[in-house]
Design a protein around this nucleic acid. Structure first.
Length: 220
DNA sequence: CACCAGGCAAGTA
DNA sequence: TACTTGCATGGT
């Protein structure tokens, strides 16, 4: 079977089993962007607490966060972990937008997808997954987000080689699927959802679904 | 108690 | 180039 067919069936199976995941939670593109940095290697629940703190303090805006002293910012995002590190990373990201795009987030997000991704990747502390998450979920442009779960799950189904890199695995999806924001949005969220079910002996499946052999998930 | 979560960069060999 | 380590809180 072609990769395209397998991915389509996997997607349909996951959607039928779990339903739409409602990603990315956040009231504004700016909030989504901030969340993308805060959630690096961090449970989403902790990120929500940090974002609540920022809202409470009335600083959840480009101008608001930019004006905040580093130590103050670190204190507010403390629940998200790595708070000193992430305060610096957020600061780097905001500086890029302020300097290169005159602090105009809408203008930045209206650029071409490659311009957005390249600009984000130049920021120290923003890697491939964070850059693509911001591009897809905040800027609403059709790039497929890959993460650790994606490697594990695709590897388990023989669609990813063990030595494949981030951009190579991304190509597997983007070569096989139509470039549609809603599809990329939901597919990534569903793969994360499936990844969280790791090692369970039972779980939702459908007849003939290529994901039926997913349990238990093999650690790579 | 140990383990890990919607990563990334810097250091080591 | 290919591993390893630091970063840190909070839930299970």
């Amino acid at each position: 079977m072609s990769t395209r067919t397998l991915l389509n069936e996997l997607y349909q199976c996951l959607l039928a089993a779990y339903g739409p995941q409602g990603w990315w939670p956040g009231e504004t593109p700016f909030e989504v962007m901030v969340g993308a940095v805060l959630t690096q290697n961090t449970n989403w629940g902790n990120v929500e607490k940090a974002i609540a703190n920022l809202k409470q303090a009335g600083v959840l805006s480009l101008a608001g966060l930019s004006a905040l002293p580093p130590a103050k910012l670190a204190g507010l995002i403390r629940p998200a972990g790595y708070y000193n590190l992430k305060a610096g990373r957020l600061s780097n990201l905001l500086a890029m937008i302020n300097q290169r795009w005159e602090g105009d987030l809408e203008w930045f997000f209206s650029q071409s997808m490659e311009t957005i991704r390249r600009s984000l990747l130049e920021v120290k502390g923003v890697g491939p997954e964070t850059a693509d998450s911001i591009t897809l979920y905040a800027a609403n442009q059709p790039v497929f987000v890959v993460d650790a779960y994606t490697f594990r799950i695709l590897g388990r189904h023989g669609l990813a080689e063990p030595d494949m890199g981030y951009f190579e695995l991304q190509e597997v999806f983007m070569d096989a699927l139509p470039s549609e924001v809603p599809l990329f949005n939901e597919f990534h969220a569903l793969l994360v959802r499936l990844g969280k079910e790791r090692c369970k002996k039972t779980g939702p499946r459908c007849e003939g679904c290529p994901a039926q052999g997913w349990l238990p998930v093999v650690e790579l």
